[in-house]
C-alpha cells in the first residue's frame, strides 16, 4: 500500500497534463503505474481499460481502477478526486471569466498545435501495449475483429468488449 499523499500528488500531476481527451491517459498511466511504479502488471492495466469501458462515464475512470489497486477504496477515491481537481478548478475559473475569455484564441491555438503529439502518444501506446501483450494468431484475429467493429460499425464499445469476453470464455 502506498501513502495516500503520494497517490494524491501523482494523480494531481497527471491531472495537470491531462490534455486532448481521455485517451492520453493510456500512455500516461501505463508509464507511471506499470513501468515506473509497477503497481499493476500490463495484463491488469489492459483489464482495467476493459472495465472502464464497461461502466458509464468517461474513460478517465481508469484512474479510479489504478488508484484502487495501489490503495484500496480510499486510493481510488483519492486518485479520482485529484486527477479531476485541476480540470474542475479550471472550468470554474473559465465559467467566472467567461465573457472576457471568449475572444482569446491563444489557448485554443496552442491546444490545436499540441493535439498531433497526443495522436503520436496514443499510437505509441497501441504499439507498446500490443507488442508486450499480444501472443499468437488468435489474439491478432480478435484484435482485427475488434478493430473492424469499432471502426466500421456503430455497435457500442461496451457490447464489443462483453462479446470479446464471451468469445474468450468459449474459445478457452
Amino acid at each position: 500500500m502506498v501513502s495516500l499523499l503520494t497517490l494524491a500528488w501523482i494523480y494531481f500531476r497527471i491531472g495537470l497534463i491531462f490534455v486532448g481527451g481521455g485517451y492520453v491517459l493510456i500512455p500516461l498511466l501505463n508509464h507511471i503505474m506499470v513501468e515506473q511504479y509497477r503497481w499493476l502488471t500490463l495484463r491488469q492495466f489492459l483489464d482495467g481499460l476493459a472495465l472502464s469501458q464497461l461502466t458509464p462515464g468517461p474513460l478517465a475512470m481508469l484512474a479510479t481502477f489504478t488508484g484502487f489497486r495501489s490503495g484500496g477504496f480510499l486510493g481510488g477515491l483519492v486518485a479520482t478526486v485529484f486527477i479531476f481537481m485541476p480540470c474542475v478548478v479550471l472550468m470554474l475559473i473559465i465559467g467566472r471569466n467567461y465573457t472576457r475569455l471568449k475572444n482569446i484564441d491563444m489557448i485554443r491555438n496552442t491546444l490545436d498545435g499540441l493535439l498531433p503529439a497526443v495522436v503520436g502518444l496514443v499510437a505509441a501506446a497501441a504499439c507498446n501495449l500490443g507488442a508486450s501483450s499480444l501472443a499468437g494468431v488468435r489474439d491478432y484475429i480478435i484484435l482485427a475483429a475488434g478493430f473492424a467493429m469499432f471502426k466500421w460499425t456503430r455497435v457500442s464499445p461496451m457490447l464489443v468488449i462483453l462479446g470479446a469476453g464471451l468469445a474468450g470464455l468459449l474459445l478457452d
Binding site: 493510456i26 499480444l134 484484435l143 475483429a145 467493429m149 469499432f150 464499445p157 468488449i161 470479446a164 474468450g168
Partner: peptide, 17 residues
C-alpha cells in the same frame, strides 16, 4: 479466459482512436 478475449479488443480500440 474472458479477459484474455478482451485484451486484444482493447488494443484494437486504441488503434481505432
Amino acid at each position: 479466459a474472458a479477459l484474455k478475449g478482451t485484451n486484444p479488443v482493447v488494443i484494437g480500440l486504441i488503434v481505432v482512436v
